[in-house]
Design a protein around this nucleic acid. Structure first.
Lengths: 140, 140
DNA sequence: CCTTGACCTCAAGCCAGCTTCAAGTTGCAG
DNA sequence: CTGCAACTTGAAGCTGGCTTGAGGTCAAGG
């Protein structure tokens, strides 16, 4: 059994965040010593899992749905696949962007506006903005 | 010369956003007809460029510094390179994440917690969180 | 037993990048 | 000239994921 200080020390997650996660229902403290929260050791895995989810682009609400009542993970494999596909898409876009930037950085055109590739990038970016307005922003 | 409605129609950027950008100093309206803003046609390129910058991960403030007094772009090629490098880094992280998710989705371990690769991912994600706390979050 | 400092709660604040609202002004069609 | 839709302003609100602050409680060490 761990007190909050110990959880902070071992997970690197600030106490304020732990309280916030508990309030949101993402984690559970297993009891109190007086007012003070006590956590089961499993909390550390759970926090690592939350960190992973965040890094993968899940929202806290989505992550909350990945735990059963006991705090054990029960992650839908289809959801993982879907998120992987989403990441793939993001990666493709970012790669195109990176290549365009790389080109612009060494393009000899006096102004970037005179570079065909740069203009293509600009057009793609504004087209994407339009789409995201319509379809409720993805991410990135 | 374009009125705001025309700019909205041709750029897809909402009027509220145009006013916000002007207030922020990112764009300039070239005059007024009565109270109403009038824009030079160049605004369309400028908005496309802003969209591109946003998509590449620049903040509005950073983008603001990319225009000279006349609204002409004057983009530091080094900044573009640096942003490209940053994107590369992001892409690498996302790729690792995607591969891990993909694996977890088809991993036969009864619980994800029992899968070595999944646990490695978890640990990477929580280690990254710690670092980002210390060094003031990048993006993604 | 008393102090102390680590914990607690609840509410408010912060960030970026907008959007929305209420109330006021105006260009222009009829 | 009138009416009204389209524009204007400034301020406030929103989203997500926290952090911060004020003020309160309590377990443990001296």
């Amino acid at each position: 059994m761990l007190d909050i200080t110990e959880v902070v020390r071992r997970s690197g997650v600030p106490a304020s965040t732990l309280r916030y996660y508990e309030e949101k229902g993402l984690i559970l403290s297993t009891g109190r010593r007086g007012l003070k929260r006590i956590f089961a050791p499993g909390i550390l895995d759970q926090l690592a899992l939350i960190a992973l989810g965040r890094a993968a682009g899940f929202t806290l609400d989505e992550i909350g749905e990945m735990f059963d009542a006991g705090g054990e993970p029960s992650i839908d494999r289809d959801a993982l696949s879907a998120k992987a596909d989403e990441l793939d898409d993001t990666i493709r876009k970012l790669s195109a962007m990176r290549d365009g930037l790389r080109h612009a950085a060494k393009c000899p055109a006096p102004s970037h506006l005179e570079c065909g590739q740069f203009r293509r990038l600009m057009n793609i970016a504004s087209a994407r903005m339009r789409v995201e307005k319509k379809r409720g922003a993805q991410e990135i």
